[in-house]
């Protein structure tokens, strides 16, 4: 039985699937010491099986569900003819194999690049730029419900505004980081460093839980130590 969590591989230790799962787990861990044939086998299995897994998943999800059932729908629904557009672009992509007209494969590519650029431009502009600026437009001085000033929160707000402004100064490309502007950029880097250090420290714990999960599987589910 597992010590901490119930997981997908929940069966008796005699099970052949469980045995393989444990072997593969150990094989991947062996890479930490150095590259070795056991790791290479695990890697080869992983690459082959997962590539096949995604090929099948894409086939059923995208070609069968989205395309085929879209253009040849069940009775009663009207077919989505425009989906053929995707198929045609996909087919043009395959022309890449040909040496002579392989350049046509650039059409679907440029279609994708154009669409991604347009889509992301608006997406990022709204969700990143506008929303973040709007969230920062807050009163610096924080009051308690009895109208006394909360100094600590006020200081926190001040730090947030200072950090956003100086952080942006750091990113300026067309102005040399000199003088007052340079000081601003310098403070900006400090904020970025705090951000990176804090985020790093904060994630350590969740990374440890991943290892705990694996060892729990090895000792508990597989070896049945507890």
């Amino acid at each position: 039985m597992s010590l901490i969590l119930a997981r997908k591989e929940k069966r008796s230790s005699m099970d052949i699937g469980m045995f393989f799962a444990a072997l593969l787990t150990l094989g991947i861990f062996s890479f930490l010491y150095k590259d070795n044939p056991v790791y290479k086998v695990c890697e080869a299995i992983f690459v082959g099986v997962s590539a096949g897994f995604w090929a099948i998943t894409y086939f059923f999800d995208n070609i069968h569900k989205k395309f085929w059932l879209g253009v040849f729908p069940q009775e009663g629904d009207s077919p989505d003819y425009w989906l053929w557009g995707g198929a045609i672009l996909g087919f043009l992509m395959l022309l890449r194999i040909s040496n002579k007209i392989g350049w046509i494969a650039r059409w679907p590519l440029s279609f994708i690049v154009g669409a991604t650029a347009g889509l992301y431009m608006m997406l990022y502009f709204v969700s990143n730029a506008l929303n973040q600026v709007a969230d920062t437009m807050m009163p610096i001085v924080a009051y308690a419900s009895d109208n006394s000033v909360l100094w600590l929160d006020t200081f926190g707000n001040f730090i947030v505004v200072l950090g956003v402004v100086t952080g942006l100064i750091y990113f300026f490309f067309s102005k040399e980081h000199k003088g007052l502007f340079g000081t601003g950029a310098q403070v900006g880097t400090w904020f970025l460093m705090i951000t990176f250090g804090a985020s790093f420290g904060y994630t350590v714990m969740s990374r440890m839980s991943l290892l705990i999960g694996r060892l729990d599987f090895l000792f508990g589910d597989w070896l049945g130590l507890f």
Partner: peptide, 12 residues
Amino acid sequence: AMFFVLLGVLAA
């Protein structure tokens, strides 16, 4: 962006 941040903070 900086201008609006500072203006917004001042106004708020």
